[in-house]
Design a protein around this nucleic acid. Structure first.
Lengths: 144, 144
DNA sequence: TCTTACATTATAATGTTTATAATTAGTGTA
DNA sequence: TACACTAATTATAAACATTATAATGTAAGA
């Protein structure tokens, strides 16, 4: 499964015309295998063994590249440093008020809301649902 | 309305034993009156006129104090600096799977999700809903 | 293999946020 | 109202994450 994910990520890089370097491979591999959501510095430190000469800038540069092609999501909580997470297949729905069309909308990060809800209410949270409502591009056009 | 909000905030400070200083008053007033979600530096700059000697540290310190007593929420997007927002009365619901109890759950910040949804799907977003599901404190106790 | 454009490295710079120590000022009490 | 006590403010420096720069190295197609 991790293998497949890595393979898919590499394919995504190829088709985006992004070069596959050993450093990029290692960063992606680390992101996929680690269950945690590491900071840039944690990634840097964990790859020090394999790449003693790797620069911190390389980690940051590549995380930006991965974000741009949609492989990685940056999570900003209150702490000092951002955390990075592979994009999962979790998704929500966005629904057109006018024609009822339902479109998948991928968004990785409402765990934060669950955590806060637990703290504030004392509930043990199991799940949540969210829907977004609006007007789809086609229905917007038809108004004119 | 802004008056009331400010008054309420000051009451909250009093009952938390937090001293009311001119700087704190001004920072709160600015947060309540401004429609935007200012950064610490923006607050600092906009109060330069009234308080030529105010230190940036004062702004940060007081924003932390306000956060601690629940008056202010820190919003961390991808940018370099945090933004700060008065806690609004917007709320969601958290629902107990077992007894059906519904508890208000205040959370200021899903605008970010709406914005991203617009960008990704091309929809014009009007609204969203979210519910959180779990087990309330009482029902958790009753299991033991 | 060769070439070229892109990636990496090392370093310095930027910018936000926090820590420190000395001064100042709220707030309860006499 | 004046006093005393404690907390808040200021000015400064430091810490920290992140980005920019320029030189060097390397992936990948011709």
């Amino acid at each position: 499964m991790a293998e497949e994910k890595l393979h898919g990520a590499i394919e995504a890089m190829k088709s985006s015309g992004v070069r596959i370097t050993p450093q990029r491979h290692a960063i992606l591999e680390h992101l996929i295998q680690s269950m945690a959501h590491p900071t840039a510095d944690e990634i840097y430190k964990s790859l020090e063994g394999k790449f003693p000469n790797m620069s911190v800038a390389t980690v940051y540069n590549n995380l930006r590249v991965f974000k741009e092609i949609g492989l990685v999501k940056e999570l900003t909580y209150g702490d000092s440093s951002s955390r990075f997470d592979c994009v999962t297949t979790d998704h929500y729905h966005i629904i057109c008020d006018e024609c009822g069309k339902i479109v998948d909308f991928h968004y990785p990060g409402l765990d934060e809301v669950e955590t806060l809800a637990e703290q504030v209410t004392g509930f043990k949270v199991g799940d949540h649902r969210m829907e977004i409502y609006g007007s789809c591009p086609e229905c917007q056009k038809n108004k004119h």
